[in-house]
Simulated scan of single mutants.
Amino acid sequence: MSNAVREDLVLSHAAITADVEAPFDRVDIAQWLKTLPTHEYQRCAPGDHKAAGYTVDDDGTPMSINIEMIGTGLVVQQYRFEVAEAHYCKMVSLSDILTPAGWTTTQVIWELRMEQLDGDHCRYTNTVTSHPTDAFLTFIAENGQTFSEAAEARQEASGRHCRVETPLYAQSIARWAAAR
């Protein structure tokens, strides 16, 4: 089966914002991600977030490893940093998903952005977009599910998850920045 990403198809998309008080000049999302302890990651989506870590890929690209539940799937994400800036990070993962029917893969793009609104009043935006792989499309077809059905289920689960984690991520980033 091919892990070729079908960028022409969107499995799910969520862009959620949360306002927070944070010293904007001390916010550094890239550093926060690289030093995010597992237990703090778990507090950002209680029950769903299982573990987080930081590593580098074979070519030296920084990576964030996240393990979480999205709906009924245990998702193992190996996010490669494509943009790693203080106020914006874009990370892309070819993620492994353990579903009740077995393993499959999707691509997940995670974007984290902090904007200064006024003084220390900031807005955090958490954007998560998922695209199926060819292997995912074969997997759902073999399990009697259409892409539309899979996308609807993933959109609901991912949307719920992002609504929980976004304000908690914003608060975690603000605490991290204030402690610097």
Rank of each mutant, 00 (worst) to 15 (best):
T127W: 14
Q78N: 15
H13I: 08
Q78F: 12
Q77C: 13
L36A: 11
K50G: 04
F136K: 00
R163A: 02
G159P: 07
F24I: 11
T72Q: 02
A150V: 10
N126H: 09
Q107W: 05
D120F: 08
L168M: 04
V27C: 09
F147G: 03
K34H: 07
I140E: 00
E7D: 01
L33G: 09
R26L: 15
T17H: 06
I29V: 08
Y41D: 06
V164P: 14
T55D: 01
A141L: 10
A178R: 07
R43Q: 04
R180A: 09
Q78M: 04
T104W: 02
P46L: 10
A15E: 09
R26Q: 01
A178E: 05
N3T: 00
I16L: 03
W103A: 00
E85N: 03
V83R: 04
F139N: 07
E7C: 01
D118H: 01
H161F: 12
L117S: 01
A157E: 06
D59V: 07
R154I: 12
E7K: 06
L168Q: 01
T146I: 06
C122R: 13
G60D: 14
F24K: 13
A141H: 11
R80E: 08
D134M: 00
D8W: 10
M63H: 11
R113N: 15
E149S: 09
Y169G: 05
D57F: 00
D58G: 14
V56L: 02
E156W: 09
T125N: 14
D134K: 00
F24S: 09
T55V: 13
H121W: 12
G53S: 07
A177K: 03
A179Y: 07
V83N: 06
Y54N: 01
D28K: 12
D58A: 04
D48G: 13
N126V: 03
H121V: 00
I140Y: 09
D28C: 01
Q31H: 05
E149M: 09
T99R: 08
T127Y: 07
A51L: 04
I29W: 15
S12K: 08
S172L: 01
W32M: 02
T38H: 02
D96R: 06
N3I: 00
R160L: 01
V5A: 07
C122Q: 02
S93R: 14
Q78R: 14
N126M: 06
G119F: 05
K34V: 11
N143M: 03
G119T: 13
V108W: 03
M63Y: 13
T127K: 13
D134N: 00
Q155P: 07
H49W: 08
G53T: 11
Q155W: 05
K50I: 10
I173L: 06
K90R: 10
N3A: 12
T106A: 04
M63E: 09
